[in-house]
Design a binder for these strands. Structure first.
Lengths: 191, 191
DNA sequence: CCTAATGTTGAGCGTTCATTCAATGATATA
DNA sequence: TATATCATTGAATGAACGCTCAACATTAGG
């Protein structure tokens, strides 16, 4: 029962199915066949829309990074309260819909794979730099430049490390605990 | 030219070759054939000694974790100086031979794969818990119990996060910088 | 020297993978 | 209603995978 205008719908379905498969089977175990089955379509259709498996994976990573970067923009905090801005960044990184076991697993899978796939590597580097430079910007309003850089590097690593360890906690990330650790780091850095 | 007593030598060679392949090709791209070629042996021999690809990978992860956990024991610091003990833990995690791009890449690859391989998952959890409990033990000599747990969780995440980000720096981890961030965290936690 | 144990290989098996391709179904437009 | 375009499928292909197995080479002990 094919209808016109299916392209965006199919693309979204297939990306969603790819998330599911990476979460369930890992990067190595994610095959086009499995993705197609999960999405309820044929193998041929996947390649019709994404050209190749690499194309599908790249689109999926783009979608993931977009998701992970979206939360922040919805908040509107006054620009003259840097600490509130940083707090918002921390909160957004541990918002409920960001730290699902599925999100963490897939995020980690891409992290590992990006080391061996130039296109994914570029996306990953952009994302890494973004968090750090955002933190640097707001911290530099509160601290001398060098201290701001130092604290931003630490805070960025701390956030990622909490994510990383969260991948192995059955319950997913302990959101409040993770948030408290980051806020504590921030408060101590500002003293 | 086969000789007796080759088993331990071959095992070591093959594990070494597996490191190389995981670093170069990633987890998904590491095949028995590539490992055998790198080690200069035949495909059959790999399976002769490790039974299966999974067996080889498990042995390789065991070897990696052993490497990463070795440094500490060589240091001997008096037990009545907890801060020195913690400093030694931090230093050992960023010791030169621990933070080679190869080590970080392989470590990260296993981290991602362990989520989908029960045997690797068990190894991984043991390792995660070890760092944290070591930190807890020494911190609890300097801080109230709850504060010690809090700081240990933060410091463990910070260390792992610095490793994680180091995977994407062309130069590998900036050892001194990473160390300074951790020591700074420690000092502030003890105030 | 013979034999048993160890070390090693390469061919071959069945499976699964990503990808190509020709063909068909459905819809909008003219 | 005709036609071009979009949506979709399933079969076919060739390569690569992990793994089995029979056979051979080398060595140590009796």
């Amino acid at each position: 029962m094919p209808k016109r205008g299916m392209e965006p719908i199919r693309r979204a379905q297939l990306i969603e199915a790819t998330f599911f498969c990476i979460h369930k089977y890992g990067f190595a175990g994610t095959t086009i066949k499995r993705v197609a089955e999960k999405a309820g379509t044929s193998v041929g259709l996947v390649l019709h829309y994404f050209g190749s498996k690499d194309g599908l994976l790249e689109a999926t990573m783009r979608s993931l990074l977009k998701k992970l970067g979206t939360n922040l923009q919805s908040d509107d905090i006054s620009d003259d309260d840097p600490k509130a801005q940083i707090t918002a960044i921390i909160n957004s990184n541990f918002a409920e819909d960001q730290v699902s076991p599925e999100a963490i697993t897939v995020w980690l899978a891409f992290w590992g794979q990006a080391l061996h796939t130039p296109k994914l590597s570029r996306l990953q580097k952009i994302n890494l730099a973004r968090l750090r430079s955002n933190l640097r910007y707001w911290l530099s309003q509160l601290l001398p430049k060098e201290d701001a850089r130092f604290a931003a590097d630490g805070l960025a690593a701390l956030i990622d490390g909490l994510w990383l360890r969260g991948a192995f906690e059955e319950t997913g990330i302990q959101r409040r605990h993770a948030r408290d650790i980051c806020l504590d780091y921030l408060n101590r850095a500002l003293k």
